[in-house]
Write a protein that binds this DNA or RNA. Structure first.
Lengths: 332, 332
DNA sequence: GGTATTTTTGGCAGCGCTGCCAATTTTCGG
DNA sequence: CCGAAAATTGGCAGCGCTGCCAAAAATACC
């Protein structure tokens, strides 16, 4: 037996059942235009009786603007993006918008392909991570006429709307904090930077700041693949095997930093007296560790919320800097 | 200045530019039906030149089935759901399906409302968490004629397809493991169970198993709100303040368990000799802690993958049990 | 009571694309 | 070189709904 019921009740059938015209049903359902209370009741009764579910595909095609918002994000493993989606989806749902998404795995050419596929749904807006995109992506988005929101990175030219903060500033402040604390022999443990350009920006600004204070980075360990707690642990282990006199390590993010933290716990390396640890993101888990993680808290959920609000409100092009917060913690 | 370019190039325009009929363009673009190589080139050239982007809204309306898959998930904070989305989205993208989602916050009536909204997009399938739904939701899904996939819980009757494992079995095995290890004075720390029915099922089976072995649960601490590391830490602290002679604690999931683990580290409570800790989910982070977390690893990504494959392949109704794996770890 | 308004309502032409079918062109076999 | 079969191609009717416009009904005003 096949599964094709598609009890497809149409607006026309509702109209007939209610004894009114199609447009009247449409008006009642969208609560738009004028109609009498009596008509309203008859229509609603028919809708109820027939179990009518409006067809948004048809509705969107017939009207001008769609209520779809497309997210093209690098990853779902990195909690950053679910957090952004979470912030955005609450606002979008309130405004009867619908979120659509696809995942690029940090691959710019995949981003281009997926953005193209998204555009085919004629979304009201496309939301992307960061401001680095292929030429093709930029051209396509420009030509599309739909709103474009670039998230989580303000270090570059925005196509239309940008919401987030400066990763370069985050890298700088992290370095400044460690220097202020008196650390001078600093190392870095990070994940694949070519793919995660935002982590790359933090790292390069971090290094520049160290250089400017005559305390250049002493050692680094870059692990292939995505950031993870295990990679952070492994990275610190490797770094310490090669370099014995470090007094602080900057990690590409909190996942990695937690790995480093666990490595120190396991190896009984005193934190921060023997080795300081500094992360990035300000995950909740970093606040519950025996020693709160020193890190920078980023406004991930708020980024999603604001982005969604700007789209819903059809705001003019702008860059919104939500800033970030340095959490002193107890590991640095 | 307003932003309404909508350079809406239509198929008809491409057809005219290429000097062919509309249906020919449609065939070439979908690589469906027959056409000559020469025609193909002319069409592609025109597409390129005009920057044509097909309109999937129109395409979906005109053809019968849509290539949308709708996810109605409880949360994006709980990494479980991003993991499922991740597994599914890879498979869906390969097959040119598009994922749409909305978040219920574990509220069944919100689930009903969101499922209704999703149905309006006439998706090929709706994916939901668990098998507990309101009567209205069930009725609506049944009537919709679209595929329904229930994820991550096999303890109940499936509407159509179900992919996951038994939460009751997970609770049972967790209890059996602790008992086998010799723990007899067992407590529980969990988050709001009314909302997260799967955690509730694990807990009740856990308790039944303890009862069956004459080692009933000694104490429990249920925290309002979502699961989090901080809530786990707080929960264990409270539990221990009231009950001093516990030898093991079962947590509603790994986030909570990690909080408990951190509490023990901070309070210098020896694990597992003084207190054993057992979680649920098998998050990666639990493998990188100084002592690997004892837990049950659930096939979250695989659940998403399989679910997507079944939908793409239009498989018949079935329940797929992916099982789970007990990780002995070192905390119990 | 009659006319001017205002409120409700229905009809119908698309939105851009796909599916069906018939027309046209190409290829093949003898 | 001709008819038949196969490969291409174009035309056009919808898919289900919204937006526009004019008709009809209700209400207001003098």
């Amino acid at each position: 037996m096949e599964f094709k019921h598609q009890a497809t009740v149409t607006l026309a059938e509702v109209a007939q059942a209610a004894g009114v015209g199609e447009s009247t049903v449409s008006r009642v359902l969208r609560n738009h235009g004028s109609f009498s209370g009596k008509t309203r009741e008859r229509v609603m009764a028919a809708v109820e009786r027939l179990g009518y579910v409006p067809n948004r595909i048809a509705g969107t095609l017939a009207s001008t603007g769609s209520r779809l918002v497309a997210f093209v994000i690098p990853s779902l493993s990195n909690i950053v993006f679910p957090d952004v989606l979470r912030g955005a989806s609450a606002v979008l749902e309130e405004n009867r918008y619908q979120a659509v998404f696809s995942v690029t795995d940090y691959d710019p050419s995949k981003e281009e392909a997926l953005a193209a596929a998204m555009l085919a749904w004629r979304p009201a807006a496309v939301m992307l991570a960061g401001c680095e995109h292929t030429e093709g992506t930029v051209k396509m988005l420009r030509a599309s006429g739909c709103r474009v929101v670039e998230l989580l990175d303000l270090d570059g030219d925005a196509l239309d709307i940008a919401v987030g903060f400066s990763n370069r500033a985050a890298g700088r402040e992290s370095a400044a904090f460690l220097l202020k604390r008196g650390y001078r022999r600093i190392g870095y443990v990070g994940h694949d930077l070519n793919r995660d350009t935002r982590a790359g920006k933090r790292f390069s600004s971090f290094c520049e700041t160290l250089d400017a204070h005559d305390a250049p980075l002493i050692a680094r360990e870059i692990l292939a693949g995505a950031s993870s707690v295990e990679n952070g642990r492994l990275g610190l282990e490797r770094l310490l095997a090669r370099t014995t006199d470090l007094d602080a390590v900057y990690f590409s993010n909190d996942d990695m930093a937690l790995g480093g933290y666990f490595h120190c716990l396991a190896e009984r390396i005193a934190i921060p007296s023997k080795l300081a640890i500094f992360g990035y993101n300000g995950l909740d888990i970093g606040r519950a560790t025996p020693q709160p993680l020193s890190t920078i808290r980023t406004p991930r959920v708020a980024t999603g919320q604001i982005a969604a609000q700007l789209v819903v409100g059809n705001a003019p092009p702008q860059a919104v800097d939500l800033g970030f917060e340095l959490i002193e913690g107890a590991t640095a």
